[in-house]
Amino acid sequence: MVAQRAVRARGVTKCFGDVVALDGVDLDLEQGRIHGLVGPNGAGKTTLLGLLLGLAVADGGALDILGMPVGRALAAPRGVAGFVDGPGLYPSLTARQNLAALAALRGQDARTPRIDDALGEVGLTDVADDRVRGFSLGMRQRLGLAAALLTAPRLLVLDEPANGLDPAGKRHVHGVLTRLASEGTTVVLSSHRMDDLESLCSEVTILATGRVRFSGPLGKLASEDRELDYRLLTSDPEGARRLAADTAGIRVVGDAVAWRGAEALVVAAQVPALDALVAGLVRADIAVRELAPVVSPLEAAFLALTEQQEADR
């Protein structure tokens, strides 16, 4: 069974004067997925999020959201919630009062139990009656997410939702987003934190200069034909170095590096050659204690694709 698309964009363009923010963007987002949006500053991420939230309209192309074509009026499509450039909040009101006011403005149910549930889900119960002007950036981000939850969105659009979050706050937010996706909500989030995206997202879109450079499952970015640098920690660093040098497709990168109080080897390889190296280490009775990319597959692909975009200009 093919999943229904939450977003379908074809040839979407958006300009601000002479600046082309989006240049023929094609995008398909399926329901019930967490989709990451990454790109360098000025890539068009905020513009695209604004289109999804109804804060701007495209100059050209076609955009369907939740099965409905988006018109030319500035209006948030039904079933869509989120924020760009941080949530809009009333600093003089408490967290609970903010949610009640926002619910009233939307003509929604503003009963206290519903609001308390949203605050509890994002971990703000203890500060529900504190004024927002004293909130940290991370607390404001969580309150913005709570406001979006009040609408029971089918498409949730978030701009840098992990900004300012401490580990507990991040755990709350990640838990909420994972639950929403499991219940069928599509989540689109932009972030410069590659680790957050890799831990949350099943799919990612990489933008550069307003164009889509990649869109698809994260697994495709770690394809077997892409060479990455890997950090290799073993029980016998010198033996591992000799074996790596003799393994086809393996390139030892520089001298050993200190890593967690031990000596680690850095090798460049594609996945098949790396598999052969690990098998050789096992046969040589050399224990593999850690093997991980020096730079994550997402970050490596991001750098390669955006650098290629700049070279093509």
Rank of each mutant, 00 (worst) to 15 (best):
L145F: 13
A146D: 14
A147P: 01
A148H: 02
L150H: 00
P153M: 07
R154Q: 11
R154D: 00
R154A: 05
L158E: 05
L158W: 04
D159H: 10
E160W: 03
E160Q: 04
E160D: 05
P161G: 13
P161C: 12
A162K: 06
A162G: 11
N163W: 04
N163M: 06
G164F: 03
L165E: 02
L165R: 03
L165T: 00
P167N: 08
A168S: 14
G169H: 08
R171C: 04
R171N: 08
R171Q: 10
R171H: 15
V173F: 06
H174I: 06
G175R: 02
V176A: 03
L177E: 04
T178M: 13
S182G: 15
G184E: 11
T185V: 13
V188T: 04
S190M: 07
S191N: 08
H192F: 12
R193M: 14
M194Q: 06
M194R: 03
E198M: 07
S199R: 14
L200V: 10
C201G: 08
V204C: 07
V204E: 02
L207R: 03
L207S: 00
A208Q: 06
A208G: 15
A208N: 10
A208M: 08
G210M: 00
G210R: 00
V212L: 05
R213V: 08
F214L: 00
S215R: 04
S215Q: 12
S215G: 07
P217H: 09
P217A: 12
K220D: 15
L221C: 02
A222G: 01
A222S: 07
S223V: 05
D225Q: 10
R226D: 09
E227L: 10
R231E: 13
L232M: 12
L232Y: 10
P237Y: 05
G239A: 12
R241K: 11
A245I: 09
A248D: 15
I250N: 01
R251E: 15
V252A: 13
V253G: 02
V253S: 06
G254I: 06
D255E: 15
V257I: 13
A258M: 13
W259C: 07
R260V: 13
